[in-house]
Design a protein around this nucleic acid. Structure first.
Lengths: 335, 335
DNA sequence: AATAATTATACTCATTTTGAGCAAAATAAA
DNA sequence: TTTATTTTGCTCAAAATGAGTATAATTATT
């Protein structure tokens, strides 16, 4: 270590990546930025060509810089940037994970500073035009089609992913590696008697990555332009960050009442159920869901009635803000 | 933004703070570094005097630098540093939180770079001499005496903390602020009919901080040298980081089998129970704890018998490593 | 050697929670 | 009116939980 004790720490630049989630028409949406080859190279002139590969479109998570001079905390930096860019208040922010892997940003190879980015999950109420260039609200199952079990087990699993994983297991170099691959696959993909676990989003993505079954893992010469039906790819490690966010949110709704951050001020119980289902990717048992919600005392009736439901009108509820710290939650009871 | 798009991001230095936990004699221990005034100023020559205040001893969490040139990932940087410094393998590492608050490190005021530190929780099996200067294994309830309910409700609560919090509530400027303070206190400290929630470690510390009841919150002229019986203070925001770690670990043992990372290879069921109790700070019901452990299939008998238990010999168990990804856990059923 | 103390472990039982479903009520559309 | 659709109240068996009692196998003490 040198005299001031720091110079050999090396230069680091901090970025903030946000997974901004909203619900539209009972679908979970994520704000995604689409760069064409032109917009990307225009922004980052020194980006090496190889890193872009043949794809002409790149989907990335919204990225914001962190200005140490202006921002007192990381979270305030994120909040001000997201609120400014999206023109809406964000109700809930949670720090997800800090990613510091070398090679995350191709500019490093060109001698740029090491990029460390802090991933955040932000929940917003509504969607609409934002000030972010080329930003679009995309269904998150576009990137993880195997995660949506609301209409039953996705066909993709039995038709493609599981057979491909079995081939990967068989191609193991020795029996202990084969055994390990097999057990991980059983646990994450619910083979044999193991049940499907909706929280293992990241673990499943990482397994597919290791088995070379997702676009990001393949070397550029084998990458097919339009994807392989195994979900839309994202640039850098952004699909990993998104998987982290989905898994964390699915876990969190089971023990904290975060769903309400995605709801309008008043709502019917069915809308609430549809939102929980959208996030967890599974159908729930209606009557039991209601029983649970009422027992936990998370909501209170407004007295008003919603009559646009098609059948019998439903009464409207609102969230009881004062239970926020009680670590109460909905719980996700299956159908 | 300038031409290369980065220069105005400002210089940032990344540090790694580790909460290294082990169990000794059924007590939860944390590795703490004690600096005297001399060792501290010797290490950081440009540290301003004010920031040290009158205390002659400063307790901090072990700190390791992150070298972007050498470390491929943040976690590998942490692992190599901790393993090297403690001379033991760490079984489990979890990223806790990234703290980037301005003013965390007093050297910033002297024109130093902004310090962002990534907090990690590391669980190790045994304790013993380490290569870290002035490092000591300390009971974590030394810093949070109100969190240990194993011998019943800590007297400190009714004798000191709760009356002081009630005074703070009464001193609110208006009724809505009073209401808010009251509700937060009820929820975090289990007043009225609310039960005590062992996971709210950080929330309780933050409430005490806001109410000016912990040393770190008081301005230097009022700080008493030897502490105030409300737990030992730590330098910077390290008691917050420690609170985050304890809360996270208490939550985690309820849904993931992380306790085993703190256990020796074989153990009796009572030892396992004592460790869970040490972490969660509460006594558990013995028979039900056993039923739970066996039902979840987390352990298997080794066939051997431990006869040093004082009474009837207990059979020894080992953890079934293959359930690690199943999201099984012990659950913490109260007594 | 007898007794007490200590700890492990098996088993019971009432209560609560969960999973799954039926049926009636209140509306819109045909 | 009928049909479809949705909300909402209710039941019932199975499983999980909380709180015990009883017994077994030891060491420590008298």
């Amino acid at each position: 270590m040198n005299s001031n004790g720091e110079a050999d720490l090396g230069q680091v630049v901090i970025g903030l990546n946000a997974v901004i989630v909203a619900i539209v028409d009972d679908q979970p949406k994520v704000l995604i930025v689409q760069h064409t080859q032109e917009t990307l190279t225009a922004q980052h002139e020194n980006l090496s060509d190889h890193s872009l590969s043949q794809n002409d479109r790149h989907e990335v998570l919204p990225f914001g810089p962190f200005y140490p001079m202006q921002h007192r905390t990381l979270e305030s930096g994120l909040r001000s940037w997201v609120e400014e860019q999206t023109n809406r208040e964000i109700g809930y922010v949670e720090q997800l994970y800090t990613f510091g892997n070398a090679g995350r940003d191709p500019r490093e190879e060109a001698g740029g500073p090491r990029m460390v980015s802090v991933g955040y999950l932000a929940l917003v109420q509504d969607t609409g035009p934002t000030a972010i260039d080329n930003a679009l609200w995309q269904d998150w199952y576009r990137y993880f089609p195997w995660e949506d079990w609301r209409e039953g087990k996705p066909a993709l699993l039995d038709a493609d992913l599981i057979p491909a994983l079995r081939r990967w297991i068989d191609q193991a170099e020795n029996s202990s590696q084969r055994q390990e691959r097999y057990e991980r696959t059983c646990i994450t993909f619910g083979l044999e008697d193991t049940p499907w676990n909706d929280e293992l989003v990241l673990e499943r993505y990482e397994l597919l990555y290791e088995a070379n079954l997702v676009w990001e893992a393949q070397d550029p010469s084998h990458q097919s332009k339009s994807g392989n039906g195994r979900g839309t790819a994202m640039a850098f490690d952004h699909r990993r960050i998104l998987a982290t966010a989905i898994g964390r949110l699915r876990g969190k709704i089971k023990y904290r009442p975060v769903v309400f951050e995605l709801m309008p001020p008043t709502f019917t119980l069915l809308r609430l159920q549809r939102v929980v289902e959208a996030l967890s990717g599974a159908r729930l048992h209606k009557q039991n869901f209601r029983r649970l919600v009422e027992k936990k005392g998370l909501v209170e009736a407004t007295g008003k009635i919603e009559s646009l439901t098609g059948g019998r009108p439903a009464s409207q509820f609102r969230f009881r803000r004062d239970v926020l710290m009680e670590r109460q939650a909905l719980g996700v009871r299956h159908n």
